[in-house]
């Protein structure tokens, strides 16, 4: 912000803001501080166009970029009990939920969707860090179970985009029980012989890392994401030792054998398309526009890839 917003009295301030700068037109990069125009940033999927820093992205935005033509259908998630513990800290849990719903326009911290990626039917579940830190409560468990059901039913692979500060403390033991419940969801997909791919994004911590996020057939991480069980602050307090540069970041985990690949967000669609088709025993994806297939022979011999061009969406 600038001196106007700091010093000019509120009424005048609002007058200025309304006329000059709706504040969501520009976004400041969390890492390099560069001011980024919102359209450029959205086009780059919330990756800083100046330094490449990957900022948070909602599952909805991510799915628009991931699925063919941005088209997907939401998978319904059975509703969980609201506030079974009647939890209250400084604020009621029910009020925190209302705030989060108002702020994000979403119902909960995980969105499940079905669509195609390079023509391959795929189920995706994405955790929404903007919704109470993506925290894993009963909804997230239910969402993963619904995602697993949808994947098994459609014989489709399941991709989970993890992003969470950990468990939803306000659901107490029931949030902890989502570790086994989500593990059951993973087991259902694996039992059906279908791929389960995890994309770890910033941050993936606590009980989320210690359950479904570490049980993938393939673990992909976005660059420089914090991925850990215990966060760096907790460790520093416990062992009173400064931690090495890049500790618990994607590249560090790659070096320590915990993840398979580090992939930029802009390349994720192509990456997932390739890996999923390889795991499903399918021929390579066809890039670019195809002429519409003749109605009857749609499922005939695999189509040979044309000269790879940039995919259209």
């Amino acid at each position: 912000m600038n001196w106007i917003t700091d010093y000019v009295p509120p009424k005048i301030k609002s007058f200025f803001q309304r006329r000059e700068m709706p504040e969501n037109l520009w976004h400041k990069c969390d890492s390099c501080g560069q001011m980024l125009f919102h359209r450029d940033l959205a086009e780059a999927l919330n990756v800083c166009t100046s330094c490449g820093h990957h900022m948070a992205i909602t599952p909805r935005e991510r799915f628009h970029a991931l699925f063919d033509h941005g088209a997907f259908s939401e998978v319904q998630v059975p509703e969980a009990l609201a506030d079974p513990l009647h939890f209250r800290d400084e604020k009621r849990y029910t009020d925190r939920m209302k705030d989060a719903r108002r702020k994000t326009g979403e119902n909960e911290a995980m969105l499940v969707a079905k669509g195609t990626i390079y023509g391959l039917q795929t189920v995706c579940a994405g955790q929404d860090f903007s919704f109470m830190g993506g925290s894993m409560g009963m909804h997230v468990g239910n969402a993963l179970l619904a995602a697993a059901d949808a994947a098994v039913e459609a014989r489709a692979p399941l991709v989970v985009f993890a992003a969470a500060g950990g468990a939803r403390m306000q659901e107490g033991i029931l949030s902890l029980m989502q570790m086994p419940r989500s593990t059951i969801a993973v087991a259902q997909v694996k039992d059906a012989g279908l791929p389960f791919v995890v994309v770890l994004t910033n941050p993936t911590t606590g009980g989320v890392t210690a359950s479904y996020a570490m049980l993938g057939d393939v673990h992909i991480a976005e660059p420089d994401a914090l991925i850990c069980f215990a966060g760096p602050r907790v460790i520093e307090q416990t062992i009173r030792e400064t931690l090495p540069e890049g500790f618990q970041r994607s590249e560090y985990l790659l070096d320590h054998g915990m993840i398979d690949r580090v992939v930029k967000r802009g390349e994720m669609r192509e990456e997932l398309g390739r890996i999923l088709r390889l795991l499903m025993g399918l021929p390579p994806a066809v890039h670019g526009e195809l002429p519409p297939p003749p109605p009857e022979s749609a499922k005939a011999a695999p189509v040979k890839a044309e000269k790879p061009t940039r995919e259209d969406g």
Binding site: M179, I184, A210, M214, F229, A230, I235, F247, H256, M258
Partner: peptide, 22 residues
């Protein structure tokens, strides 16, 4: 919560142990 434990995959070990129980 320690440096070595994290480097050697504390989260993965816990996840696999839960999976083994199931």
């Amino acid at each position: 919560p320690g440096k070595g434990a994290e480097e050697r995959g504390q989260a993965e070990a816990i996840a696999r142990s839960t999976e083994a129980c199931l």
